[in-house]
Simulated assay, not measured.
Amino acid sequence: MPVYTVHAPVSNGADLVATDKFAFVRDGFHFWAAVAGLIWLAWHRLWLALIGWILLLSAVNAGLAWSGVGSRTTLAVNVVLALLLGFEAASLRRWTLSRRKWRMLDVVVADDEETAERRFFDRWTKRNRVVGNSHSVERGGPPPTRNVPGQPFSKPPPIPQGGIIGLFPEPGASR
């Protein structure tokens, strides 16, 4: 079963609000990266990797041509390099995302990207719901205690002028 890593952009503190910008990168072999590497790298906007790939292919092909290697060997080396790009395509995407200051949020195992999104967001909303719905109330200070000198809450409230309404009209009086 494929493994996906989930990445979120980090920009101005609004990174986790824009969930539509999350990137799900599948680990494993990418067929189109191996078959059409230049187009795949440009499609995913991996510009530094694209420049590096062009330089690598140019250097390898120039080195093979300079050394007088046959066309079959050159083709075999290019096929091996294409397979290497197919296997390392996900790593290049993760590297580019981390270089752009994206952070990895989670790792999800799923059959396809849609299922990975569903599993990730189910877990993510449960985790955020527990953290966000803690019903703690700020009381503003410590609980009142008696006989603490210098603190206004340590004194009992003053007795009203007209007496006390209730069962005991005078404080401290006998019943």
Rank of each mutant, 00 (worst) to 15 (best):
141 G>T: 03
88 E>G: 04
61 N>W: 02
10 V>D: 09
122 D>T: 15
166 G>V: 02
22 F>P: 08
15 D>W: 12
9 P>M: 09
147 N>Q: 07
115 T>R: 14
12 N>A: 07
96 T>P: 05
69 V>Y: 06
22 F>T: 14
58 S>T: 15
83 L>Q: 00
38 L>V: 14
26 R>S: 15
85 L>K: 06
66 W>L: 12
103 R>S: 08
27 D>H: 14
54 I>R: 06
157 P>R: 09
107 V>S: 13
103 R>I: 13
145 T>N: 00
34 A>Q: 08
96 T>Q: 05
156 P>H: 04
162 G>D: 13
3 V>S: 04
30 H>C: 15
73 T>P: 04
93 R>Q: 15
75 L>D: 14
7 H>M: 11
56 L>Q: 03
121 F>T: 12
153 F>T: 09
33 A>C: 09
17 V>C: 03
78 N>R: 03
9 P>Y: 03
109 V>K: 14
153 F>V: 11
56 L>E: 00
62 A>L: 14
154 S>N: 00
98 S>F: 06
46 L>V: 11
36 A>T: 10
168 F>Y: 05
132 G>T: 11
157 P>G: 03
72 R>P: 00
168 F>G: 10
143 P>G: 10
114 E>P: 00
54 I>C: 01
9 P>T: 01
94 R>K: 09
111 D>F: 13
44 H>C: 07
154 S>F: 03
122 D>P: 00
104 M>F: 11
59 A>S: 11
154 S>P: 07
121 F>H: 05
146 R>F: 14
11 S>W: 03
82 A>D: 02
74 T>M: 10
5 T>P: 08
68 G>W: 01
33 A>I: 02
4 Y>N: 02
96 T>E: 06
4 Y>H: 09
54 I>E: 04
88 E>V: 07
173 A>D: 13
75 L>Y: 05
14 A>V: 11
135 H>K: 13
95 W>S: 14
121 F>Y: 06
32 W>T: 10
63 G>P: 05
29 F>C: 13
24 F>T: 06
150 G>S: 05
5 T>I: 07
35 V>L: 07
57 L>R: 12
15 D>H: 15
125 T>F: 10
4 Y>M: 00
63 G>Q: 02
166 G>Y: 01
57 L>C: 14
109 V>E: 12
114 E>S: 15
128 N>Q: 11
115 T>M: 15
120 F>L: 04
120 F>R: 06
111 D>S: 14
40 W>M: 07
89 A>R: 07
37 G>Q: 09
61 N>I: 12
22 F>E: 04
142 P>T: 01
114 E>F: 08
33 A>Y: 03
70 G>N: 04
146 R>S: 12
37 G>N: 12
61 N>Y: 12
174 S>K: 14
16 L>T: 15
52 G>V: 04
98 S>L: 12
162 G>I: 09
84 L>M: 08
124 W>P: 00
61 N>E: 12
125 T>E: 07
131 V>W: 01
6 V>N: 14
11 S>Q: 08
35 V>T: 04
174 S>W: 03
144 P>R: 02
77 V>I: 11
9 P>Q: 03
105 L>H: 01
88 E>F: 04
73 T>Q: 05
48 L>F: 01
147 N>R: 08
59 A>D: 06
166 G>S: 05
171 P>G: 02
34 A>L: 04
38 L>Y: 15
87 F>Q: 11
125 T>K: 12
128 N>Y: 06
159 I>K: 06
162 G>N: 05
151 Q>I: 15
108 V>Q: 09
